[in-house]
């Protein structure tokens, strides 16, 4: 086996051993903290029946995750539907940029949880509230990156459009979007990451169903090994989402088709 491959396997394994050792020490020091072995056994039980449904929040882990993902994709889709056109507008029009910029700068740093009570008051519905909170916190990277992509269209390409007398519509689809698409996907990738962060916090507060709710529910049940399982599953699902998004982004990036 080449040296690099051995390293790629040996080094993470070594670190895994260290982590397990630290974890075990913590578990000994804090009474009731689940040990790695207990957690592993619980994980097998949780994963052995992921689709059970006893109604009212008592559902298998796969159903909890699916319920979270549904909300994430709802808010994420909405953020794309609004964010891309707004970003295109801001990128193409100096006036639009001047108009929008102060609000983007002020709203961007607002914590998703600050929106939650307002959304609950307005929608009086857990799903709608979660979707809105994801929408309002994940839209900013899409707007900002789309506008950045539009502004990075080189003057030469725009001159080509001028000489050929492209209509504004043709200019957007034939010149601006091909350049901006990789930027838009970068924004979408950041957005999806944010959305996945936000959903856990939102579900803890709204309750009902979902991976965030599940973790909080297990806390109340004093079932601490399930909290750790929840953390690991959130991480794994987040990683998978990011990888899929990166794969799609590369597919639409003309620079990544072996042509540069």
């Amino acid at each position: 086996m080449p040296y690099k491959t051995i390293n790629a396997i040996a080094l993470p394994t070594l670190l895994f051993g260290v982590l397990i050792a630290v974890w075990s020490t913590v578990a000994i020091k804090i009474p009731g903290f689940p040990t790695p072995m207990e957690t592993w056994n619980e994980l097998l039980i949780v994963l052995s029946n992921p689709l059970y449904d006893n109604g009212a929040g008592d559902q298998g882990i796969a159903l909890q995750l699916m319920s979270s993902l549904k909300r994430v994709f709802g808010g994420f889709a909405l953020a794309i539907a609004v964010g891309v056109p707004v970003g295109l507008l801001i990128g193409m029009s100096k006036a639009a940029q001047t108009a929008f910029n102060p609000y983007i700068q002020i709203l961007k740093p607002v914590s998703p949880l600050a929106w939650l009570p307002l959304a609950l008051f307005v929608f009086k519905d857990v799903d709608m509230t979660a979707i809105f909170v994801i929408f309002i916190t994940s839209i900013w990277p899409i707007i900002i990156n789309t506008a950045l992509g539009v502004r990075s269209v080189s003057e030469d390409y725009l001159n080509v459009a001028k000489v050929l007398q492209l209509t504004p519509f043709e200019k957007v689809f034939q010149i601006i979007l091909p350049v901006a698409v990789p930027f838009i996907f970068t924004g979408m990738r950041l957005s999806l990451g944010i959305a996945w962060l936000v959903i856990v916090a939102a579900e803890m507060l709204t309750g009902g169903l979902g991976i965030g709710f599940w973790i909080w529910d297990e806390y109340n049940n004093l079932n601490y090994s399930h909290i750790i399982i929840g953390i690991i599953l959130i991480g794994v699902v987040g990683y998978i989402l990011d990888t899929i998004m990166g794969f799609i982004a590369d597919h639409f990036d003309y620079r990544k088709r072996g042509r540069v």
């Binding site: 030469d156 390409y157 001159n159 001028k162 000489v163 007398q165 034939q174 003309y254 042509r259």
Partner: peptide, 18 residues
């Protein structure tokens, strides 16, 4: 205004890379 009866060859070719 620009128009196709006056075509321009730019120094840096300006081909669309996609």
């Amino acid at each position: 205004a620009p128009g196709p009866e006056r075509a321009v060859v730019f120094q840096n070719h300006s081909l669309l890379p996609w």
